[in-house]
Simulated assay, not measured.
Amino acid sequence: MLYDTSANGNTNPSREYATLAPLFKGGFFYHRNTTPGPIGIGAEPKSEGKACSHSYIGMFSFGNSRIETAKKNGNIQKVAFVDYENTGILAGFIYHQFCTIVKGSN
């Protein structure tokens, strides 16, 4: 089985974080970035739900950053839009946080 490792096969919601691009954009010691995600249909952004996962020194990770978890945390039934937030210390090697933010309505 062959795996596509090109930029076209990148399925990371924050696509630049699946490449070396953050190393060259600045913010090596600390960075925080929000990336817009998919847009829902027929909902107003009245509520917000957030779900995060964390990683320390690339060896220990925990959390749940699924869209469904963010919807549950915000009591959201209809999704208006989804954003992704990345926070990293020392290019994300020491600490990296990935959050999914869902806005919508009940």
Rank of each mutant, 00 (worst) to 15 (best):
M1A: 13
M1Y: 04
M1P: 10
T5R: 09
T5K: 10
S6K: 10
N8S: 15
G9R: 12
N10A: 03
E16P: 01
E16Q: 00
Y17C: 03
Y17K: 04
Y17S: 03
A18K: 03
A21L: 14
A21R: 13
P22W: 11
F24S: 04
K25R: 14
G27T: 08
F28N: 14
Y30H: 13
Y30M: 12
Y30N: 09
Y30V: 12
Y30I: 11
R32I: 11
R32C: 10
R32W: 11
N33Q: 15
T34Q: 13
T34F: 08
T35I: 10
T35W: 10
T35S: 10
P36V: 02
P36G: 04
P36W: 06
P36Y: 07
G37F: 10
G37P: 09
G37Q: 08
P38N: 13
P38I: 07
P38R: 11
I39M: 06
I39N: 07
I41P: 06
G42R: 07
A43P: 01
A43N: 03
E44V: 13
E44C: 05
E44L: 11
S47A: 11
S47M: 06
E48A: 02
E48S: 05
E48Y: 04
G49T: 04
G49K: 01
G49W: 04
G49R: 01
K50F: 11
K50P: 00
A51D: 01
A51I: 01
A51T: 00
C52V: 05
C52L: 09
S53A: 15
H54W: 13
H54E: 02
Y56M: 04
Y56S: 03
G58F: 07
M59A: 10
M59I: 14
F60N: 06
F60W: 09
F60H: 05
F60E: 01
S61A: 04
F62A: 02
G63Q: 03
R66A: 08
I67A: 04
E68K: 00
T69I: 07
T69K: 14
T69L: 10
K71E: 01
K72F: 12
G74W: 00
G74H: 01
N75V: 00
N75E: 00
Q77M: 10
Q77D: 12
K78T: 13
K78N: 14
K78C: 08
A80L: 11
A80T: 10
A80D: 15
F81R: 11
F81C: 05
F81M: 07
V82P: 07
V82H: 07
D83N: 15
D83R: 10
Y84D: 03
E85I: 04
N86R: 15
T87P: 05
T87A: 09
G88P: 07
G88Y: 13
G88T: 05
G88I: 04
I89C: 05
I89K: 06
I89M: 10
L90C: 15
L90A: 15
A91W: 14
G92C: 05
I94M: 12
I94Y: 13
Y95I: 03
H96Y: 15
H96R: 14
Q97N: 03
Q97P: 00
F98E: 14
F98K: 14
F98D: 08
I101K: 09
I101F: 14
V102R: 01
V102C: 08
V102T: 02
V102M: 06
K103M: 11
G104I: 00
G104N: 02
S105L: 07
S105V: 09
N106I: 04
N106Q: 03
